[in-house]
Structures are given as structure tokens and as C-alpha cells.
Computed example of a mutant assay.
Amino acid sequence: MITATRWFDDVLNPEGAEAVTVALPYAGAAGRAFRPLHPYLPDGCALALVDLPGHGRRMSETCLRDAEAVIDGVLDAIGTLGSRRLVLLGYSLGGWLAYEIATRLTEAGTPPAGLIVCGTRAPHHGIGHPPVAHLPAGETFLREAVAMGLASPAMLELPGLADLFATALHADLTVVQSFAFRPRPPLPVPACVVGFDADWLVPEPALRAWDDLCAAPPLHQRLMGGHLAMHDQQEEFGTAIRAGLDHVLGVRKEG
């Protein structure tokens, strides 16, 4: 049985899991953003929801601001999962982290079963928006982030919480700006790329560029909506992730 740890806010479907999907959320979010995926998990597949320091149940901890520190922490946590088949699922910033973790596991001789990235530019295409982490964390910064589509407008509508949200988001966007892409051989594991048709932050060329980083062509899926459409299109997003999991885990469709 897989149990929750400091890095995993929760583990869904832990009993008897033969595979586990480690879910890394977008900037400013906690692992619980992926909870609506629960009904879409294949049999025998658990979902480990990642909370970075300063997020979700770890709100009292100091946020990390360096990509290397985040990657090292998640890699250590993955080491507690045992020998189960591992899928790395990342959304936006989480997609970059998932890719980097997949490459490091591969370099160590323990490649994951697969990679799923959502709303994520191929890392060699840059961040795709003007940097905002140079602004002090606070309401002005948060308004700029919301205006760019990097954060939900709802963050500005909760009295007294704007500064709290801004702290985690500011740290994560600093992580984004500290991320250094390093060219490697194409990733030799199956991959899935989920994009959104109205996401100006991650246009089609930045999604198709994932083909350059994968040894085999990824499964590409496109949904309606903007950068954070996983919340507006929950059923469609869940169905896309299920298709991605079936693809990377090699599940055959009947009929």
C-alpha cells in the first residue's frame, strides 16, 4: 500500500496499486487540483498528489524558489514509492518538472513508464510570457499574473487571501525563471501532450515541439479552453488524462 508523505498531499487508489501517477500541479496550485481525476484512473493505478513546500497542507513551510531544489525533493519522494510502474503527470510548471524528473530517472537507469504533460510548452521554447517574478509578491504581482492567465481571477476575489496566494505563486514563477533546459537524447518512454485551443501561453508550435524531445511521437490531445481549462472542462480533461494513461501504460482497447 502507498501512503501519503510530506511531499504527497494524498494518494488516491493506494490499495494494491501496480502503477502510480505522480501529479505535479501548475504554478501556485496544490496537489488537490488533480482530485477530480479520481474517477478517471485506470484499475490498479494510484494517483499521488504533490504538494510543494508552502502549498496546500505544507502552507506553513517556506516556499522553494529554485528548480533544482524542487526536482531533488520530488525525486527523493518518488524513492518511497517502491518498484511500481511510475507515470509523471505535470500541468504547466508541473510539466517542466515532470519532464526533468523523467530525464533524470532515465539517466539513472530507472526510466518511468511514461510522461503526460498538460498546458506545458516544450522547455526549449522558453516561458512564453513576460517575466513577472521581479515584482514583489503581493496584490500588484497577483493582478499581473491573473491578467496574463497565469492565475485564476478567483484568487483576487477571496478577501484577505490574495497575499497568501501570491506568495506561493511568486515562488513558483521564480522556479519557472530558474529552470535551465539542458539538451539530452530523446526521452525513450511513451508520452502524451494535452493542450488547449485558446491557451495563448502555450500555442500549438510549443506543444508540437515536444516531438523533438521524445524518441517516439507523443499522443497529442487538444481540448477547448484557456490555460487553466482543467477546471472548466473537468470531464473532458479527465477523459483526456485517462486516454493518456492508457497510452503510456500500454492498455489495449477492446473492440
Rank of each mutant, 00 (worst) to 15 (best):
E61Y: 09
L52D: 00
T62S: 15
P53C: 12
D51A: 09
R57Y: 01
I78S: 02
I78W: 05
E61C: 10
G54S: 11
G73L: 05
I78M: 09
D66G: 06
E61I: 08
D72P: 00
V74Y: 08
H55K: 10
L47N: 01
P53Y: 11
L75Y: 01
D66C: 11
R58W: 09
M59D: 10
L52N: 07
D76G: 08
R65L: 14
C63T: 15
V70D: 08
I71A: 07
L75G: 03
G56S: 06
L75V: 02
S60D: 13
D76T: 09
A48S: 03
L49Q: 03
L49N: 05
A46E: 03
S60K: 13
T80Q: 05
D76F: 00
G54I: 04
C63W: 10
I78V: 13
R58Q: 13
D66Q: 15
T62I: 12
R58E: 10
I78D: 05
V74A: 04
L52T: 01
G73T: 02
V50A: 11
L47T: 00
V74C: 06
A77H: 07
A67C: 12
L47S: 00
A48W: 00
L64P: 14
R58A: 09
M59W: 11
G73Y: 07
M59N: 08
V50P: 14
L52P: 02
G73M: 07
V70E: 12
T62H: 14
A69S: 13
L47H: 01
L75D: 03
V74H: 05
G54H: 01
L47W: 01
A77P: 12
A77F: 04
T62D: 15
L47M: 10
P53F: 11
D72E: 14
G54A: 09
D76Q: 13
A67N: 07
E68C: 08
V74L: 14
I78H: 02
G56M: 08
L52Y: 14
A46F: 01
C63A: 15
L49M: 11
V74N: 06
A46D: 02
D66N: 15
D76N: 06
R58P: 11
G79D: 03
D51I: 07
D51K: 10
L49E: 06
L52S: 07
V70W: 13
C63D: 15
A46W: 01
A48G: 06
D76R: 14
D72C: 02
C63L: 11
L49S: 05
P53G: 11
T80K: 00
I71F: 08
P53K: 12
R65P: 04
